[in-house]
Design a binder for these strands. Structure first.
Length: 395
DNA sequence: CGGCTGGTACCGGGAGAATA
DNA sequence: TATTCTCCCGGTACCAGCCG
C-alpha cells in the first residue's frame, strides 16, 4: 500500500540500462529540476509540486494547517524569498562539500547561528564523510544490508551488539544474543519500528534501482538527510548528537556507519551526520508550514530513499507559542534586513504579469492570490505600513 | 559553598492503533 | 462507536558528580 500516486506535473517513462522501467521521475532528477527552477525564481512550480505530495499526508489532520491553499502558498513563497545562502546550498546538494571553502557561506552562517539561540529555526542532518561527500548508492545499499541483518531476530548477534555499543547507553552481549536491539526496543521489540526500518530499506533499494548502474559508485549528488524544527536548534542538535529524544532510525544509521568504518573496514571513510541550521522562521504562522515544506523540498522522507524522516512534520511545534509578539517583530525585522526578501517578492509580482501576458491565467491567478492573500488582521504581527514603493535597502 | 555539566526521567500534544 | 493506550518529536526539571 504505497503512497497514492503523486499527481505532480510531468511523469517520464524511461527504461534504465538495467532494463528496469521507471514510471516516475527519479528523486535525483526531480531535485535537480527543482533546484534549477528556484535559481530562475520560479517558486510557484516548485511549491505546487512539493505541496501536492506533502499535503496529502495531512488530509486527516485537524488544525495544523490553514484551510486556504493561497495562505499556505504565501508562506512558502515567503520562505523561499527569504532563504539564506545556506538554504539554497542545501537544496542544491552542495552544502556539505562547499561549506568549508566558502567564506560568504560561513559569514552568513555565523549570523544565523547567533540568532538561532532565540529564534525558531529549521535544522538539517546530512549524511556525509569527513570531506562532505555523500555515500555512493552502492554504499547506501551496504548500510541497508546491515539494517536487514540488525532487524532479523535470528541474525548476527555480534554485529547487533557492536552497533548497539557505538553510543550510549551500552548494552550487554547477553542481551544481544537474546534478541535485544536497542533501536528496535520500546517495551519490547516494536513492530512499529520494524515497519519503519523496513520501509527505509525499501526506499534505499528504490533509490539504488533508479540510479543508473554507471553512477552507483560515485557519491550521491544529494546526501541522505533529516529535517526538523526547534525553538533553539543549538540545544536540539545537541540532543541529537547525544541520541536523546532523537530519531532512532537516524541514530541507528550513524552508528552503523561507525561499525562499517571502524570495525568492519568496509567503508574507507567515516560517514556521519553533518548538522546545519538552514532557515530562520520569522512569523508564527510559518512554523508548521516551514517544517513541512522544507522536509518535502529536501526530500528527507524514508519512502523515497531520501533520508531519515519517518514521523509527520509540523506536529511538535508547541514551543513556538512561547515566542512573544515583541520577539516575533524582532525576528521579522532581522530577516528582512539580512535577506533579499523584498527584492525577491518584487520579482514574484513581476512574474504574475509575465504569466498573465503569456496567457497562463491559471498560474498568474494562483500566484497573485498568494501574494495578495494579505496576512489579514491579527494574523500578521507586522501589519504596519507596508509600502510597495521601494525602500532602498543599503547596508 | 555555588556553579557548571552530563545523564535521566518526565511532560505535552497530536495521531493512530488497540480496546472496551 | 467511544475511550484508552502507545508512540513520536521537542522541550524541561532535577539530580549526581565535579570543579574552582
Amino acid at each position: 500500500m504505497g503512497i497514492t500516486a503523486t499527481t505532480t506535473a510531468s511523469f517520464s517513462l524511461e527504461t534504465l540500462p538495467s532494463g528496469h522501467v521507471q514510471l516516475q521521475e527519479t528523486l535525483d532528477k526531480k531535485r535537480r529540476r527543482w533546484s534549477s527552477l528556484l535559481h530562475s525564481k520560479d517558486y510557484h512550480t516548485v511549491i505546487r509540486e512539493v505541496l501536492s505530495y506533502e499535503l496529502g499526508k495531512y488530509a486527516n489532520s485537524t488544525s495544523i494547517l490553514p484551510k486556504s491553499m493561497s495562505k499556505i502558498m504565501r508562506e512558502c513563497i515567503l520562505i523561499l524569498a527569504s532563504a539564506p545562502l545556506i538554504f539554497t546550498a542545501a537544496v542544491d546538494g552542495i552544502l556539505t562539500t562547499r561549506f568549508r571553502a566558502d567564506q560568504d557561506l560561513q559569514e552568513e552562517y555565523a549570523q544565523i547561528q547567533e540568532r538561532a539561540h532565540r529564534q525558531p529555526s529549521i535544522y538539517v542532518h546530512l549524511l556525509a564523510d569527513e570531506e562532505g561527500l555523500a555515500p555512493t548508492a552502492n554504499q547506501y545499499m551496504v548500510i541497508r544490508d546491515i539494517i536487514l541483518k540488525y532487524i532479523t531476530y535470528s541474525g548476527d548477534a555480534e554485529l547487533a551488539w557492536k552497533i548497539d555499543n557505538v553510543s550510549n547507553p551500552k548494552t550487554s552481549t547477553g542481551a544481544a544474543t537474546q534478541g535485544y536491539r536497542k533501536y528496535l526496543w520500546t517495551t519490547d521489540i516494536s513492530s512499529r519500528r520494524l515497519k519503519i526500518l523496513t520501509k527505509f530499506c525499501d526506499g534505499v533499494y528504490k533509490r539504488w534501482m533508479e540510479t543508473p548502474p554507471a553512477e552507483r559508485e560515485t557519491p550521491m549528488a544529494f546526501p541522505p538527510g533529516e529535517c526538523g524544527y526547534a525553538l533553539n536548534s543549538h540545544k536540539r542538535l545537541e540532543q541529537h548528537r547525544k541520541h536523546i529524544s532523537s530519531n532512532y532510525l537516524m541514530n541507528l544509521v550513524s552508528d552503523i556507519c561507525v561499525v562499517l568504518h571502524r570495525d568492519l573496514n568496509l567503508f574507507p571513510h567515516l560517514f556521519s551526520m553533518h548538522q546545519f541550521i538552514i532557515y530562520l522562521i520569522f512569523k508564527p504562522q510559518q512554523v508548521e508550514i516551514a517544517e513541512i515544506f522544507c522536509s518535502g523540498l529536501l526530500q528527507v522522507w524514508i519512502e523515497i530513499g531520501g533520508g531519515f524522516n519517518h514521523y509527520p512534520a509540523g506536529l511538535s511545534t508547541a514551543s513556538a507559542k512561547k515566542v512573544t509578539p515583541d520577539e516575533w517583530r524582532e525576528h521579522d525585522r532581522f530577516v528582512r534586513d539580512m535577506s533579499p526578501l523584498e527584492h525577491n517578492l518584487k520579482v514574484q509580482r513581476a512574474l504574475v504579469d509575465e504569466y498573465a501576458a503569456g496567457l497562463n491565467e491559471g498560474m498568474a491567478g494562483e500566484l497573485r492570490e498568494a501574494l495578495e492573500s494579505h496576512s489579514d488582521d491579527e494574523d500578521d504581527i507586522r501589519d504596519v505600513d507596508f509600502k510597495p514603493d521601494d525602500v532602498d535597502t543599503d547596508e
